[in-house]
Design a protein around this nucleic acid. Structure first.
Ligand code: FES
Ligand code: FES
Lengths: 145, 145
DNA sequence: TAATTTCCTACCGCTTTGGTAGGAATGGTA
DNA sequence: TACCATTCCTACCAAAGCGGTAGGAAATTA
């Protein structure tokens, strides 16, 4: 399957909540989970990779929580998905030609390489700020009705 | 992971061999497997979906084998991968919004929808004939050296 | 009839997925 | 100091998917 796992999907929603909260201090994982209707226990697994990739900051203890390590316009979906799902290549041999013994002949490999570039470019073209703007736009127009 | 399984990868190579052989009558699975260095037994699993999707024709019995059901320029990588890997959406809720209860609010869903379109368009832009041309070009220039 | 090849179904070990759970470490607060 | 809330680390688990092997039936040709 050419499908995202819940790591990438939930991770994007987690980061979106942090982006919505940007500038308001640390946000509790409990609150993120509540707003996105996800399990706190599962979200805990997504935090370490995001933290080591320096996308989020964490504060322990009471009054702790999480916040974005950069401005929402400086974090793209590509970074988030990359960190949680791994590289985008549809076939390993795109980056490691050695594993296919006929990679020098293989014409399909070029397709997979191009596909990787396409996926990467698409995800890189959206920042968290874009999501926030889109959400605010839809949300306020709804309230005004 | 956002990765192709061997079904899609091997299937593309299988179809490529049939495209190379196009016009020369049925080709044995045994020969395809030999040329691509794959297991016949495993390739047998890829045949039924390709056949029901009317991408290949099969002839049973001795002197049997497989051939493309359409001209190589009329078969895209999109069709092949789609048949063997299933739909391209990174998240199920792109096509079935009901499974996420907050799909009407969810801004990440739009990203996954766009990603599906990008993947689909990229794969649709390459036909089997393209692969054959590319292979012949590389192969003949190599022989002339 | 015999040989060849497709075709159908089952099986199997391994890895990934999508979680749950326990409990230690940390920091604020009274 | 004691207490509490929260992050953080590690282990565990059931179910599904993956990659592949295997047996044998059905069809076609010679
Ligand atoms: S080189 Fe890896 S699939 Fe062809
Ligand atoms: S609607 Fe499915 S992930 Fe948001």
């Amino acid at each position: 399957m050419i499908r995202l796992s819940t790591k990438g999907k939930y991770g994007a929603r987690l980061m979106f909540q942090l982006a919505l909260n940007y500038g308001n201090g640390p946000m509790l994982l409990k609150e993120i989970a509540a707003r996105e209707d996800l399990s706190v226990r599962y979200l805990e697994h997504l935090v370490p990779p995001l933290r080591t990739a320096r996308l989020i900051l964490s504060m322990r203890g009471s009054k702790g929580g999480y916040s974005l390590a950069k401005k929402p316009q400086d974090i793209t979906l590509k970074e988030i998905v990359r960190v949680l799902e791994g590289p985008f290549y549809p076939s390993e041999c795109v980056e490691a030609p050695d594993i296919c013994n006929r990679s020098s002949f293989c014409v399909t490999r070029n397709i997979w390489a191009e596909l990787e570039q396409t996926i990467s470019a698409t995800l890189a073209s959206h920042t968290l700020q874009d999501l926030v703007d889109e959400y605010r736009k839809a949300h306020t127009s709804e309230e005004s009705s």
